[in-house]
Amino acid sequence: MTLHQIRTVIAGLLLFAVVLFPAYAQEEKTSAAMTPELLEKIRKSNNECFACHSEEGFKNPPKVEMDLVKLRTLVQDTKAFNGSNHGLMECKQCHGQGYNDFPHEAEASAKLSPCEECHAVKVLKIEMQFDASVHAVNVKEKFTCNTCHSPHIDLIASKLIDPRKIVAQDNRHCLDCHDSDLQFAKFAPDDEKTLLKKARPNIDTIHDWLPNTRRHWQRVRCIECHTPEGKGGKILSHQIMDKEKAEKKCLACHNTNSSLMTRLYRHLIKEEQQKLGFVNSVILSNSYVLGATRNPLLDAVLMITVGALLLGLLLHGLGRIVVRLMQRRNNHG
């Protein structure tokens, strides 16, 4: 190893030690170090923001000179925020500079703390996946984490647990744009031929091959099919795949070895107890998935019944043939 190579390795290790590890540690300690006193301090600090940035604040603005039209777009659901991923953090943690005084600085939003300031390890991993996704290919410059993930509302799947809540939250990320011409137009790339904004493909039309399409969207996430099969990591891949690459094999989910168990239901995998004798019974609380949620005992009873009937009919038929042959032999004899 040359001196230059040794220097490079040491620099890499230092970068990891200085940047990534503290960021990772901060991610871990957010909820672990919470005390009632600290929570009260956070709530008190956040209430100063919610005095304006909440439904209540909007209805009764504490200052007369406020731009209510602009404020309307900046109102937050306080209850949803308090239950979200960032609900135990001060608003100031991200909205640090430029937000202390009113009116806030004109460029304050540009000074927002980037996600990687806390989520460095995640972002590093996700960025590589995102770079291979359809969004990076078409509209990378317009995409940030916030484009899909609402930092004021979202809660990670491992905390939401309930598959219906996970589906409702995660599909909203996709359908907010892909089921709305207005939102889609904000991100749509220009069409190479017409040089006009690409029109939003009708979400139902492009999924018309999928039976009970809307029912699927209520019960599973778009990303079950539109992300590649992972290796069981902590988070699902952020490589969103377009319709050409997306999973179209129904059997990926609709069989006893259903991929749903390593995706949507992976946070409930420990609860799988084969209730009522069904395999993948944990899915049954949310959906009956044809081919995946089967009762092997019932299947066996029915197969044995059909088998026994066929055997009985076969023996009956053979008996008739034998009797007929014997009768013929006797008649000829």
Binding site: W209, P211, K249, C250, L251, H254, N255, T256, L290, G291, A292, R294, D299
Partner: peptide, 19 residues
């Protein structure tokens, strides 16, 4: 085919079976 859906034992392909 639908009830006993299994990639190793395809009787009639799943999507075709549904239709």
């Amino acid at each position: 085919s639908l009830h006993f859906a299994d990639p190793n034992l395809p009787l009639v392909e799943f999507a075709l079976s549904v239709r």
